[in-house]
Design a protein around this nucleic acid. Structure first.
Length: 261
DNA sequence: ATGGCCTTGGCTCAAGGA
């Protein structure tokens, strides 16, 4: 079974890239972030025609997540609220969390807030959001021990996940506070980064800035991840970044990450 | 040096992204 994650930076602008990639990769599940489309304008038919079901949670202009699945998904849970209840309603105003069951797996798709600049209001929001995420995942994990958590985490977990970690304490996505928050929310629960099972060395990235010819110069960051619960981690047979879509005309600034179970 | 570039909305510039 192949599961992938891809921040597409607008599903409508990237529609042709996504359909081309789906047909070539034949993944069973594709988790999308930054769809930037309200649910009533989601291009559902395009994916239905390709043989995929879609679970969606979007909004106008910003954020938005979706999960495409060849098999019909079970138990679609939108937002933190579906698991944690009404107390966390404010954290669901931005559409960043979507979960469903397929086969014997529970899949969680996340679009972690970017955080703008270190110390800013958005940065504080990001750290708060990751705290809620920890509670959310701990609760999900109790119910569903076979868990796949994928998405755009907007955090480079280690220095080797950044082309140049110099001055990282001043850079959003790279501060110790963000790394510790991510660790507390995910790896401390026993979930592990599938990519690192197969690739210990640095120099592998999933996002490159549009500016300064960053992709051509490979000035990237590895901020898109797939985390697996222990049994799935031992079962994983491959995890890789597919750089090809980033080479296409008018690409997303992120490229897909795929795990094979 | 501290910006570069892309997307959305609908204001042809501003905000947000990372």
């Amino acid at each position: 079974m192949k599961i992938a994650t891809w921040n597409v930076n607008s599903i409508r602008t990237r529609l042709e890239h996504i359909t081309t990639w789906l047909q070539a990769s034949q993944v069973d599940v594709l988790c999308l972030q930054e769809t930037k489309v309200p649910d009533d304008k989601f291009p559902l038919q395009v994916f239905t025609d390709l043989g995929y079901h879609a679970a969606i949670s979007g909004q106008k202009s910003y954020n938005g997540v979706a999960i495409l699945s060849k098999l019909p998904p079970q138990q679609i849970d939108i937002g933190f609220t579906a698991i944690l209840g009404t107390e966390v309603i404010p954290w669901d105003q931005q559409k960043r969390v979507l979960s469903l069951a397929v086969n014997d797996l529970r899949i969680v798709n996340l679009y972690v807030p970017n955080g703008s600049a270190v110390g800013s209001e958005k940065y504080i929001y990001k750290l708060g959001w990751l705290k809620v995420l920890g509670t959310y995942l701990a609760t999900v994990l109790k119910q569903f021990p076979h868990l796949v958590v994928c998405g755009d985490f907007n955090v480079a977990p280690q220095d080797i996940d950044i082309h140049d970690p110099t001055g990282r304490e001043k850079e959003v996505m790279a501060t110790d506070a963000e790394r510790l928050a991510l660790q507390a929310a995910i790896t401390d629960l026993g979930l592990a980064d599938a990519f690192r099972k197969f690739t210990p060395e640095g120099g592998h990235f999933s996002w490159w800035d549009y500016r300064a010819a960053a992709f051509r110069r490979n000035l990237g960051w590895r901020i898109d991840h797939i985390y697996l619960s222990p049994m799935l981690y031992s079962r994983a047979i491959a995890c890789f970044i597919d750089k090809e879509p980033r080479t296409w005309e008018q690409p997303s600034d992120h490229t897909p990450v795929i795990v094979e179970l």
